[in-house]
C-alpha cells in the first residue's frame, strides 16, 4: 500500500490561511489502512482546525478512493460551497481531485512517503520502488533496488558491518538478507549471475492496456 503521514499542522494552517470555508476530504483506501487520511483522521484534523480557528467552516467527507474519478464525482455538488479542498489522500488523489475541479484550489494535507508494508502497529517500512522490472524471483523475495540504500544489483558494497547497512545501524544490509534467503531456498546460484545493468524507467510513467479500452485501438 501507499504510506503517507500528515504534514505538520503549522504547514497546513499556512496553506489554509487565505480560506475560511474548507472541505476536508478523506480517502478510504491506502490512507485509511496506514491511518493517515481515513474517516478517523479526517475527524481529528477537522476538530483540530476548528479548535484553532473558530470562524472557520470545515466540512468532512470521506470517499472510497481519491484516485478514481467515479468516486471523486461524489464531491461534485458540494465543492461549490467551499473556497478550497483540503485532501487527505496521497499525491495521486490530491491531483485527481484538482484535475476534476479545475477552478478550485486543492491542497495536500499529507506527505506521501513510499510503497511499503506495516511491520508492526505504528511502524511501516519501504519495500517497493515501482521500478517497473521486478526481479524478486531472483533475489529471494527481497528487493535490492528498494532495500539496499544504493540500489545495487550485483552484490553488496563494502560498507555493511555486523549485517547492517552503512547508512543506518537499524537497517539490515539487504544483500545479506538476500544471501540468507537464497541459501534457505537453495537458490544461491542466482548470486553468480552475469552482472546486470539496470534499465531505469523513464518518468512520468504511463501504461495503456488495449484489452481494457473502450475505444477502438489504433
Amino acid at each position: 500500500m501507499i504510506i503517507a503521514d500528515q504534514k505538520p499542522l503549522s504547514e497546513i494552517q499556512d496553506m489554509l490561511a487565505p480560506y475560511r470555508k474548507i472541505l476536508l476530504v478523506g480517502c478510504g483506501t491506502c490512507m485509511t489502512f496506514c491511518s493517515a487520511g481515513g474517516r478517523e483522521e479526517v475527524a481529528t484534523l477537522a476538530g483540530t482546525l476548528l479548535s484553532e480557528n473558530k470562524d472557520m467552516t470545515v466540512d468532512k467527507m470521506t470517499i472510497p478512493q481519491q484516485c478514481a474519478v467515479k468516486f471523486i464525482d461524489r464531491l461534485a455538488d458540494k465543492v461549490g460551497n467551499y473556497e478550497a479542498i483540503l485532501s487527505m489522500a496521497c499525491g495521486n488523489g490530491v491531483q485527481a481531485v484538482a484535475n476534476r475541479f479545475p477552478e478550485k484550489p486543492v491542497l495536500p494535507a499529507l506527505n506521501t512517503q513510499f510503497i511499503g508494508v506495516e511491520k508492526e502497529p505504528g511502524i511501516w517500512t519501504e519495500s517497493c520502488m515501482a521500478c517497473g522490472d521486478c526481479i524478486l524471483w531472483r533475489t529471494g523475495g527481497i528487493c535490492p533496488i528498494t532495500r539496499c540504500a544504493k540500489s545495487l544489483l550485483n552484490g553488496p558494497c563494502g560498507g555493511a558491518s555486523g549485517g547492517k547497512c552503512e547508512v543506518s545501524k537499524d537497517r539490515p544490509c539487504a544483500w545479506q538478507e538476500i544471501y540468507h534467503a537464497l541459501k534457505r531456498l537453495n537458490m544461491l546460484h542466482y548470486l553468480k549471475e552475469k552482472p546486470r545493468v539496470k534499465d531505469w524507467p523513464i518518468h512520468p510513467g504511463r501504461i495503456v492496456r488495449e484489452d481494457l479500452r473502450e475505444v477502438e485501438a489504433a
Binding site: 492496456r209 488495449e210 484489452d211 481494457l212 479500452r213 473502450e214 475505444v215 477502438e216 485501438a217
Partner: peptide, 10 residues
Amino acid sequence: FKAKNRVRYV
C-alpha cells in the same frame, strides 16, 4: 470494439 481489443490481446 471492446471485444476487438480483447481478441487482439488474447
